[in-house]
């Protein structure tokens, strides 16, 4: 456990010192800050707009940080050949993979907390302190980001960087369109296409499950049981992604 933690901490330290992911975070903060520009709207409309834009910015820029953070975590070790010195130490390959997952999760967490704190600060400034529904939305966004990071991490154990980026973004987009996909499948007549699309629908994580912001922004409540089940759903997919990462990295020559 200590070795996993050390690998994770080293991954996190690298992202802090290299500062590359800061740029994405700065963009997120700019977009969240820019949502205040809608002051020509009524106070209620403006607040909705701030919430909507901020949730979207935290989610989208967080996804970029998760994808690039996870991509860099493994591939850089192999490209720079630092992995030679690491794997010849008393460390299992599984320690390395799970350590990297810890590291990527820390990167996502810190960037997420900074962006979320900025957003909450903005709400307080607007004299509308966040209610529990806002925190539920943020919690689900956080788990979605961790899931995105773990999927990119799994892909990085057996694909090239370019293929990984394409796949990760493809899954991110398709994962947000799965509800439309279901309707599409029901209308399909070609059995083969229907089967393939159905398989894709089942395999691809449904990121829309984590999206409750549309409801929260218009003042609807989302139950804790929904939040709990969605978190469990995310954890299940994370476990599958980590299992895939471990399976391929155990067999990989570096």
């Amino acid at each position: 456990m200590k070795r996993m933690w050390l690998v994770g901490l080293n991954t996190f330290r690298e992202s802090i010192r290299k500062k590359t992911l800061y740029i994405i975070l700065i963009f997120a903060l700019i977009v969240i800050g820019a949502s205040k520009l809608f002051s020509f709207l009524t106070a209620e409309e403006e607040l909705k707009m701030i919430k909507d834009v901020s949730f979207s910015a935290i989610e989208f820029f967080g996804a970029l940080i998760a994808i690039f953070g996870a991509l860099y975590a493994v591939s850089a070790e192999i490209e720079r050949r630092t992995i030679y010195t690491l794997l010849t130490k008393p460390i299992r390959r599984s320690d390395f993979v799970i350590g990297k997952f810890f590291g990527v999760s820390m990167i996502i967490f810190v960037n997420f907390v900074l962006a979320a704190a900025f957003f909450i600060g903005l709400l307080i400034f607007k004299k509308s302190p966040p209610d529990i529904q806002v925190f539920k939305t943020l919690l689900l966004i956080f788990f979605e980001l961790i899931l995105i990071g773990s999927i990119t991490l799994a892909l990085s154990t057996f694909t090239s960087d370019a293929f990984n980026i394409i796949c990760s973004f493809f899954l991110y987009i398709v994962g947000h369109l799965t509800s439309y996909g279901k309707e599409l499948i029901e209308r399909m007549e070609n059995i083969v296409m229907k089967g393939l699309t159905d398989m894709l629908y089942t395999l691809v994580p449904n990121y829309e499950n984590f999206n409750i912001r549309d409801k929260i922004v218009v003042g609807l409540d989302v139950s804790w049981s929904y939040v709990g089940w969605t978190v469990l759903y995310g954890i299940l997919y994370m476990c599958i992604a980590l299992y895939i990462a471990l399976y391929f990295f155990e067999k990989r020559e570096v």
Binding site: E14, R80, R81, T82, Y84, T85, T88, P90, I91
Partner: peptide
Amino acid sequence: MKQHVGFLPENPYYY
């Protein structure tokens, strides 16, 4: 076994 082994790779690259 790795606890007792030290390794220096060729043209070492570190963090």
